[in-house]
């Protein structure tokens, strides 16, 4: 019985909403006809109830606010016109006027308002490939008899960023990134038959600061390609030798050897990076696809402590080279625009 009442109530509610919605559509059409006929004084009262009861669809709400803005312009009610313009921009932040239909007075008022987002919030997820670059070589074996090879390994990264457009397609962004990365090094001493396989895995917290130039920034339909570059403050959260071993003699395995507690790695680093990508607009927001190449500006290895650990030097027969870490990353992201429409400063007292 209760179920039946619930179904009937819902059906009635839906019918009622559709009825009200249909009514409000008629009201908006009538209001626009009134405006065309030059009878503008009664329009605000006509639209008010539907606006108050959310009787319009989004598209109708935009039309209603735009109509009201024009009504107030032509009835010399400037403050109410501005109020309506703000309401219009809150519903449709980057509302575009049509030169063919919209009056010059509306353009004039529109120009006085900030329609750009105040900032954007971006989220990116993706993978990276770490390539170590040797600055200075070190080994427990003479170079002639030591064959060391590095292999890039894949990791992932996630980034949150706050972005702002400055002018002429130039944007700045400050982010917070988490990165997990890894590389492998095989160290073979042919003369002694010693082979060490080292997997160096890291977790980073990074604060990238970048500048981005968007080609055709105002493009509202097609993709927006961009190039960018910047620097990053990098903080090493974790660095370990994982699943590492030495062969030759009795095999020695080392799992989860903590490089940070033994101060064998530098916690602080800085990176420089360049990259490019494309933005795909979804209304006022964007989906981004981005490629970035990054290289550490400081030594990843703490040179003071490279020989400090018996486990690495003697156990694994491995001494770390001075390294700069390079990262190639591909990410997919979503950027949300945040708006706060209001009158531009220079027009506030006008």
């Amino acid at each position: 019985m209760k179920k039946r009442i619930l179904i009937i109530s819902s059906a009635l509610l839906l019918l009622s909403y559709n009825y009200i919605s249909a009514q409000c559509t008629q009201v908006l059409n009538r209001a626009e006809d009134e405006f065309e006929a030059g009878r503008i004084l009664g329009i605000p009262a006509l639209l008010q109830e539907c606006l108050n009861t959310d009787g319009f669809s989004k598209e109708e709400t935009i039309r209603a606010h735009k109509l009201l803005t024009q009504v107030y312009i032509f009835s010399d009610q400037e403050s109410k016109a501005e109020e309506s313009m703000i309401k219009l921009l809150k519903v449709d932040p980057e509302h575009q006027l049509d030169e063919n239909f919209d009056p010059a007075e509306l353009f004039y008022l529109y120009e006085k308002f900030r329609v750009e987002p105040i900032f954007r919030i971006g989220m990116k997820l993706g993978g990276n490939l770490l390539t170590p670059y040797v600055i200075n070589e070190y080994s427990a074996f003479s170079p002639e008899f030591s064959n060391r090879s590095y292999t890039s390994a894949a990791g992932f990264n996630a980034e949150l960023s706050v972005e702002r457009h400055f002018a002429l397609g130039f944007e700045g962004s400050l982010g917070l990134m988490f990165r997990s990365s890894k590389y492998t090094v095989d160290n073979r001493s042919d003369s002694t038959g010693i082979l060490s396989t080292i997997n160096d895995a890291q977790s980073w917290a990074k604060i990238p600061l970048l500048a981005r130039y968007n080609f055709n920034y105002g493009n509202r339909k097609g993709p927006i390609p961009y190039v960018m570059g910047g620097v990053s403050f990098d903080y090493l959260l974790k660095a370990q030798f994982v699943d590492s071993n030495r062969q030759g003699g009795t095999q020695k395995a080392s799992n989860n050897y903590d490089l940070l507690s033994n101060e064998e790695r530098n916690r602080i680093n800085f990176s420089g990076f360049v990259g490019g990508g494309v933005k795909l607009r979804t209304q006022t927001h964007f989906i981004t696809i981005e490629g970035r190449y990054e290289v550490g500006l400081l030594n990843y290895v703490n040179p003071d402590n490279r020989f400090n650990s018996n486990e690495t030097v003697y156990g694994l027969s491995y001494v770390s080279d001075d390294l700069s870490l390079g990262f190639l990353s591909i990410t997919v992201g979503y950027t949300r625009s945040i708006y706060n429409p209001k009158k531009k400063k220079k027009f506030i007292n006008q």
């Binding site: 200075n136 070190y138 570059g229 990076f273 990054e294 290289v295 500006l297 040179p303 020989f307």
Partner: peptide
Amino acid sequence: LILLGASGCILDSEGPQPDEIFVKF
């Protein structure tokens, strides 16, 4: 800054150099 990063310019290689301390087998 971008050019600096792109060129892989390393600012820091300080610390004991190979002729200062070592372990060799």
